[in-house]
Design a protein around this nucleic acid. Structure first.
Ligand SMILES: [Zn+2]
Ligand SMILES: [Zn+2]
Ligand SMILES: [Zn+2]
Ligand SMILES: [Zn+2]
Lengths: 136, 136
DNA sequence: ACAGTAATGAGAACCGTTGTCAAATTCATG
DNA sequence: CATGAATTTGACAACGGTTCTCATTACTGT
């Protein structure tokens, strides 16, 4: 679908650090958060580099990116590279991955019904996780 | 669901102009676009005012707001105030409104399944409309 | 008309993000 | 290992959308 060009990327300390930091979080993180975390963790990485790599990873489908309510881009390394969606807790940010054939079919159908092609969709479910709900 | 406080809003020339401009477009428009359109249309409206009113309208559910791929907020006056979604053309911006009980149910179900409450969801379908597809 | 309150607008400030470009790193190749 | 071409990095400036500030203006009820 998306022209997967033979992306040649070089392994660098920075890229690894970013991927590493991301892989240890069950929550979506902003570029700035990653940058801060790496900074305090000793081995700092330039802010621009964090942005560039996160974008590259997202483009390669290695990580998922969604937009926060105020337009900030947040990233998350997902367990699977297959198409899926998230249920995100607006209290703690916890995100669980879910799949749903019914949504996929619905999106396709409703788009085709109106003559649209090359269809893509974004679906995000948001609420309060059990813990956060209890804590109120 | 969302506490609909008795929002007291005063009628002003600006507010009307914005609502008017918005109501005549089947496409999502950014605050800046609205501002520009109003400016060239003689009766100018301050940029800050455009932002404020669009936000207020969105909060009141009078208009829908979605985030463009690069994080820009775009607004659209919808035919119905009931809950619904859109299929947007990434070529020309044309947006058609759709409803889908199946998605609604799916969202509820999948959230509940993971112990989430106070669930909300965003669903946007995006592709190329017939015209734009032909034009390539 | 009058006072009280909400709304406006010009501009500054904010903040996430992207661009710049010289210096550093990686990868072939010899 | 030495060398050079190609990538990547990082400090910092610049950008663009959005929000803030606050003096001025427009509504509203009495
Ligand atoms: Zn939570
Ligand atoms: Zn999907
Ligand atoms: Zn189109
Ligand atoms: Zn829905």
């Amino acid at each position: 679908m998306t022209g997967q060009l033979p992306t040649t990327r070089r392994p660098t300390r920075q890229r690894t650090a970013i991927a590493e930091a991301l892989s240890h979080s069950p929550e979506f993180r902003s570029a700035q958060e990653i940058h801060a975390r790496l900074a305090e963790g000793g081995a700092g990485v330039g802010l621009a580099t964090v942005y560039r790599n996160l974008q590259a990873m997202a483009a390669d489908g290695e990580v998922d990116v969604i937009r926060t309510e105020d337009g900030e881009a947040v990233y998350r390394a997902c367990a699977t590279e297959d198409h899926h969606h998230h249920v995100v807790c607006r209290g703690c940010g916890l995100a669980v991955e879910v799949t749903g054939d019914s949504v996929e079919r619905w999106a396709e159908a409703v788009a085709a019904e109106h003559g649209f092609v090359q269809v893509r969709h974004t679906v995000e479910v948001e609420g309060l996780c059990g813990d956060c709900a209890r804590r109120r």
